[in-house]
Design a protein around this nucleic acid. Structure first.
Lengths: 157, 157
DNA sequence: TGCAGAAATTTTAAGTTTGAAATTTTAGGC
DNA sequence: GCCTAAAATTTCAAACTTAAAATTTCTGCA
């Protein structure tokens, strides 16, 4: 069971490949379940989740397209298409900014909120299921480690 | 700094969102650097990595399309397109299976191997850089945890 | 042998994703 | 008040991705 000593660099690479494998596997399973149970896609779910969270935080005017693309870490052009299809389905509505005509606010409709809450409940259960091999103590520890990582990345000075 | 006690289910969801954020951020950075420095894309790099690894393990006939799609956890139709473009660029060649005409073997050309080794060296450095906030001991620990996770997922009985 | 079903792959349609270019609007300096 | 730069968004072309259908080939069995 002993393992050959690897350089820190090679170990980080090994970790990266494992992380990628884990997230791809979980994502594939979540996508499949969203599709089968709700006819939804992962990107749409992600967008709706961001809008729902924003709505909880400040139930006023939703998010701008730019806030949305930053929150999801995807390109701005990408968000345009996904929102377009969500609007077609009646889950999202656009609202112009009265004071800045460049900006468009986007928010969930009531139908969108209801649909999201439905999916989110199931989604939480699925994630819990798929990550169930990780004991709660491990989960807490991992969150700590990742918090530290994020702090280090976002505070270069 | 104290945090409200969350249910195991909510904690796993929190971990999942953090993991997603980490991997998306690292992937975005890797994609950008591959593009700028090598004019390559992440999917192409992944495919070449799988083929290179296969070539090291058994330097005979490469991988079949099915082996490739399973190794990368992507759909079979997906691999077809990526391989097509890699063939056009002279990095990959197809070879028919003599005994089974349904099967196509795929392997890196010499140019493909050289190009990959170049990128792989840089890629390892980038990953090391992007994950550098994680100390070697943490990296080892995380690998352990993920190994256990994988074992639990793949051994249901 | 003949044939039903499985297996490997490609094709197709729809959606996602990116990076860059184009468009529209705003802000700030002069 | 103009004019250039910045900001928000959309458009565009190319690539990636999936699930499902179609194609080709093989396998096993009656």
């Amino acid at each position: 069971m002993s393992r050959i000593e690897l350089s820190p660099s090679k170990q980080r690479l090994r970790l990266w490949l494992k992380l990628l494998r884990l997230t791809r596997g979980v994502e594939a399973e979540l996508r499949e379940r969203l599709r089968v149970n709700y006819g939804a896609t992962l990107p749409r779910f992600d967008v709706m989740a961001a809008l729902f969270r924003a709505d909880e935080a400040r139930a006023d005017h939703g998010l701008t397209m730019t806030e949305l693309s930053r929150a999801l870490m995807v390109s701005n052009g990408n968000v345009t298409g996904i929102i377009e299809r969500l609007v077609e389905d009646g889950f999202v509505q656009r609202r112009p900014d009265e004071t800045d005509r460049r900006t468009t606010f986007v928010q969930l409709t009531e139908a969108g909120k209801a649909a999201f809450q439905d999916m989110a409940k199931a989604h939480e259960g699925w994630v819990n299921d798929l990550l169930s091999p990780l004991a709660p103590a491990e989960v807490d520890h991992l969150i700590e480690v990742l918090n530290a990582h994020r702090a280090a990345r976002t505070t270069p000075e």
